[in-house]
């Protein structure tokens, strides 16, 4: 145990913690993105609300989600510790410093980008996660025809104290599959109609893009996974996948609701 402790408290050990938590957060982004693509479905939120319920009630996913919260906190804490150590390593700075001549801007500003992302995560979780868990949300009732899955009857049910709960059953008599679920889709739609939220989300996704543009590849370098045959693939996934595609896809959601809903 003392070996692990000394290893993790070394400079390289702290870096491994940063890289592992960072990569774990990257994998989460993929899952989060796939789920959120349900927002683009024109189904009054049937798929999205079903997905939101699964994400908050399926035990293995719940366990992973706690790991995720811990990762965010550890990643941010270690960033703070490492940054303060790095500041101490150069108590007197340079009067003239030409960083652009030797390194990309993103790589030198991971702390600022990360701070923007942390603020975003707090706002984002307050907007949706906290609302979903604790607020008195209206419910959505979907009656999907058993013969024609495209035939869906949607009714909004206002919140009604303890009388309402998540329900999922098949009503053979009426030939429908019924789903009554918290209407998170409604909350999403309402929020994404306000321009300042849309702006905040888009700006945060730009920060995410820059953060991952450097971060993904950097994590592999830290882990020592640097191999001539794979480094270009890692670079490609980091820069085009995590640095461009994923942030654009996330930013497209508020923009889609703002302009087309």
């Amino acid at each position: 145990m003392s070996n692990l402790k000394t290893t993790l408290s070394s400079s390289l050990g702290k870096k491994i913690v940063m890289s592992l938590t960072g990569l774990f957060l990257c994998t989460f982004l993929i899952v989060h993105l796939i789920g959120n693509l349900q927002l683009f479905k024109d189904d009054n939120g049937l798929a999205f609300n079903a997905y939101a319920y699964t994400m908050t009630h399926f035990t293995p996913i719940k366990i992973v989600s706690y790991l995720l919260y811990a990762s965010i906190i550890v990643h941010a804490m270690y960033a703070l510790i490492l940054t303060s150590m790095n500041k101490k390593a150069r108590p007197v700075g340079y009067a003239q410093q030409n960083g652009n001549a030797n390194s990309p801007w993103t790589s030198r500003n991971m702390g600022i980008l990360g701070t923007i992302l942390l603020i975003f995560i707090v706002i984002h979780m307050n907007n949706f996660w906290a609302q979903y868990h604790w607020a008195d949300l209206p419910y959505a009732k979907y009656e999907v025809s058993l013969t024609d899955p495209a035939d869906v009857k949607f009714t909004s049910i206002p919140f009604d104290g303890s009388k309402i709960a998540h329900t999922d059953y098949v009503d053979i008599e009426h030939g429908v599959k019924v789903l009554i679920a918290k209407d998170l889709y409604l909350i999403v739609g309402e929020l994404f109609k306000q321009w300042w939220y849309v702006l905040l989300y888009v700006v945060s996704m730009v920060a995410l893009a820059f953060h991952l543009f450097h971060g993904f590849r950097s994590a592999f370098q830290t882990l020592g996974w640097d191999h001539k045959k794979y480094v270009s693939a890692i670079r490609f996934i980091g820069e085009w996948g995590f640095g461009l595609l994923i942030p654009i896809a996330f930013a497209a959601m508020p923009l889609y609701f703002f302009f087309f809903k």
Binding site: S10, S11, L12, K14, K15, L82, M85, N86, K88, A89, R90, G99, N102, S103, P104, S107, R108, M110, H214, R217, S218, Q221, T222
Partner: peptide, 17 residues
């Protein structure tokens, strides 16, 4: 690495500078 840490050098952030 232990000596490097003891000397008070900073940590790598892979900037490539």
């Amino acid at each position: 690495v232990a000596q490097m840490d003891e000397e008070g050098f900073g940590n790598c952030t892979n900037t490539g500078a």
